[in-house]
Amino acid sequence: DHDVVPEDKFQETLHLKEKEGCPQAFHALLSWLLTQDSTAILDFWRVLFKDYNLERYGRLQPILDSFPKDVDLSQPRKGRKPPAVPKALVPPPRLPTKRKASEEARAAAPAALTPRGTASPGSQLKAKPPKKPESSAEQQRLPLGNGIQTMSASVQRAVAMSSGDVPGARGAVEGILIQQVFESGGSKKCIQVGGEFYTPSKFEDSGSGKNKARSSSGPKPLVRAKGAQGAAPGGGEARLGQQGSVPAPLALPSDPQLHQKNEDECAVCRDGGELICCDGCPRAFHLACLSPPLREIPSGTWRCSSCLQATVQEVQPRAEEPRPQEPPVETPLPPGLRSAGEEVRGPPGEPLAGMDTTLVYKHLPAPPSAAPLPGLDSSALHPLLCVGPEGQQNLAPGARCGVCGDGTDVLRCTHCAAAFHWRCHFPAGTSRPGTGLRCRSCSGDVTPAPVEGVLAPSPARLAPGPAKDDTASHEPALHRDDLESLLSEHTFDGILQWAIQSMARPAAPFPS
């Protein structure tokens, strides 16, 4: 592969990997390779389809078979030569091979799209000592099968071997295949498990690692696999990028399955594409389908809103127990993405979901129960707010008499603000006073009005108090039968009158 990737590009890729991570280095090298001529790309395919690569990765054979028959990708048995050289000459001794072996032994695996480039050397060096003999053996194999790289107009793939297949390693990572398949204008990513390549439709969760975000852009890794992070704060999961590491605690105790298979379609829109997988259930989501939507993949363990709600429900009964003089119970939860139609709101002032922060849900004790107040519409209280300059209440639009249902020339009671006709409430011909108009209920007259088809109010509507207090003497005590009587009149003013009279009014101040 030294004929494909020059030394300066190799060093530039290593520097970019240390600065921005393996995914960015892979993407940059792939983009550079696509700008080369067809001879360089053909050399790339020839390096990929060597015999030892085909033996190690069985899924490469179907890719090789898909090439046109007129494309010669065979390799000479006596060494490598550029395709432009007409004579089959043995190339001179390859010093770059020693360079590659020494550099890969030092860096474990470079971040390139060629056999030198995919593992994360920093994480491997940190986690190597417990498994040094086995990992050293794996390093000797890295130059042979560490990076199976493929690129063409139909298929483009980048393979990364790992030393996680050490025997006896619980939940060992089998390997990473960062794979971009450009077929019919689409893009897919796969993962390699035990020599087999699994596409998103049959993606397997190998051991402790999972394909957290099938994305090839942005600074985030394709698999949430930063070796420096180790395990999740809650004892979460091992990262795919942690090559040759000792077994780590796999999943939280509440995880239903340690080796679950995540779905390959969004649980909201039932469509495929780039998904984020939940650590607590097999569901996966688009970032845009979450509520609120996320802009980037959160670091650490992530769970959907259903799993978060289940966790909150487990903690909430203990938080609601009476604990005198104790601060509110704080339950730190990872930043969760909410699927459509589901929402768990945190306290005000918290950062938005999706940031690399930890939301704190506070379970406050329930407030003391209070008697429910009568629910009145805002339009129902409008007549009470229509007060004239002299303190006389004006008529609201649409006000109707509670007896006849007519809204023409209605009066407004100064005591309960109900609309009424003087002739309907006082049919006996009582003279109307000039000021202080009161309806039949507030004036103490319980004589029913002779209106055909309208039920008369119940005599129990009024329960006047002592006459010594004029204001308190007109406080009506309405009961269920009074409400039914008012409802039978089918008037809004009657219902409003009952609601206003049912509310307690402050006692009249004593004259000074």
Rank of each mutant, 00 (worst) to 15 (best):
C289H: 15
M355R: 10
A371G: 08
A371W: 12
Q309A: 03
Q257C: 07
V387Y: 06
P347A: 05
G407R: 07
D279Q: 12
E265G: 12
P347H: 05
H421Y: 03
G280C: 15
R505W: 15
D470E: 07
A460L: 11
A508S: 06
L258C: 10
S299W: 14
A267V: 11
Q257T: 05
S473V: 07
G280P: 07
C404V: 02
G336W: 09
V360S: 07
P427G: 08
E350I: 09
P293G: 08
Q316C: 11
E390H: 13
P249Q: 09
L478V: 08
Q316E: 10
P253I: 10
V387P: 10
P476S: 12
P324H: 09
P256T: 14
V446H: 12
R423Q: 12
D271K: 11
P293M: 00
A319E: 09
L373G: 11
P374C: 13
V315F: 10
S245T: 13
G453T: 02
G444I: 10
P298D: 13
Q313W: 15
Q313Y: 08
L455I: 07
A508E: 08
P509L: 11
L384T: 09
G375T: 08
L290R: 12
P368L: 06
A417N: 14
P293Q: 03
C277R: 08
V403G: 09
A508Y: 09
P292F: 10
H363Y: 14
P322Q: 13
K261F: 04
E274S: 13
C416D: 04
S473L: 08
D469E: 09
P327Q: 07
A460D: 07
H286V: 06
Q309P: 07
T331A: 10
C401E: 03
S488F: 06
Q313V: 04
A428G: 13
P459M: 15
V446Q: 13
L290G: 12
D482S: 04
S306G: 09
R461K: 06
W302H: 04
Q325W: 13
L294Y: 13
R283T: 11
P328Y: 12
A371M: 09
G405W: 13
P334E: 15
G346P: 10
C278S: 10
P506K: 01
A319F: 14
D406Q: 09
T447Q: 03
Q501T: 15
A460P: 05
S485T: 15
L385F: 14
E475S: 02
P367D: 03
S369M: 07
S291C: 10
A380F: 09
T430G: 10
E314Y: 14
A449K: 11
G494L: 02
H382E: 14
F285G: 14
A310F: 14
D279A: 13
R461P: 04
C269V: 06
C269S: 06
P249C: 15
G407P: 13
R270P: 11
K261L: 08
A396K: 02
D377T: 14
P298Q: 05
S443Y: 13
A248C: 10
G300S: 03
S512Y: 14
A418R: 12
G280N: 03
Y361R: 05
Y361N: 09
L385N: 10
A370G: 13
R438I: 11
L364H: 02
R412I: 10
L337K: 09
H421F: 02
Q497C: 01
P368N: 11
S299Q: 05
L290N: 08
G300N: 06
R461V: 13
Q392D: 04
A353W: 15
A418K: 08
F285M: 15
G398K: 06
F426H: 10
E263S: 10
S431W: 00
S458L: 08
T471Y: 15
T358P: 08
D470Q: 08
P368K: 15
P368Q: 12
C401G: 02
R412Q: 08
A477C: 13
G391W: 13
C307E: 15
I500E: 00
R283C: 13
V246S: 13
R480H: 02
G375A: 09
P327S: 10
R400I: 03
I276A: 07
P459D: 01
C289L: 09
N262Q: 10
V246T: 07
G349W: 14
P367S: 08
P506S: 08
D406I: 03
G375F: 13
C277M: 07
S245P: 12
G346I: 13
T301V: 09
P335R: 10
R480L: 08
A504Q: 07
R345Y: 06
I500N: 01
P509I: 11
D482P: 06
G429T: 04
T430F: 02
C278G: 09
A463N: 06
G349E: 12
C266R: 05
G494M: 06
P433K: 08
P256C: 11
H425I: 01
A371F: 13
Q316H: 09
L252Q: 13
T358Q: 06
D377N: 12
V410L: 05
S473N: 06
S431P: 13
C289Q: 13
D264M: 06
C439I: 02
C413Y: 01
V329Y: 14
